[in-house]
Design a protein around this nucleic acid. Sequence first.
DNA 1: CCTACTTTTGACCTTTGTTGTACAAGTTTT
DNA 2: AAAACTTGTACAACAAAGGTCAAAAGTAGG
Lengths: 91, 91
Amino acid sequence: MLGAKLKELREMNGYVQRQIAAELEVDTAYISKVENDEKPLSKSHLKKLSKIYKISERELLTIWLTDKIKELVKNEPTAKESILLALSEMK
Amino acid sequence: MLGAKLKELREMNGYVQRQIAAELEVDTAYISKVENDEKPLSKSHLKKLSKIYKISERELLTIWLTDKIKELVKNEPTAKESILLALSEMK
DNA sequence: CCTACTTTTGACCTTTGTTGTACAAGTTTT
DNA sequence: AAAACTTGTACAACAAAGGTCAAAAGTAGG
């Protein structure tokens, strides 16, 4: 989900992976993996990416965090209950 | 939250920490810390605890996972949005 | 108030898991 | 064929998990 979004954003803004990799000073392989959800995106890159892709950092963070939550509860039989419970306890 | 629940369950069932520690084959200090949320409870202990405390394993797992979620989103400005988004994507 | 028991605290330790990264080679796209 | 992307493997660094031990501190009963 985050990967797909990042890819979409990149293409919308007319970049190739190499350019993004250069901006973030990482390997293009890393970008590829992130876009394919094979590696998590380092939180430290959110700010720069939000600038490059002209999206609010907050929106990107929301998606990023959502991914983390989904990863955490994946395969847990009580995923839904737990999320609902967490939510109700945070109000 | 999990810690408080565990303590409540233990007391309801009339045990002291030493007894629980013995059952789980760990140090009492560990039990103390878990009950005070200073250390996470290892998932591997859930089954035994649910038996000792006569609560369904599923219910204990729900609470345990809820704790993990809360820990994950703690201090994140987008916590609520992200949880809601995760939930909606899991339906 | 003593003392025996329970619980907490703090420092420490080892193992395991994750992250972030790199490089090379392969595949796909243009 | 060149450029872009993907994939496999490896690895060091670091953080977190899952404890232990000894000592301190709380708590009841006699």
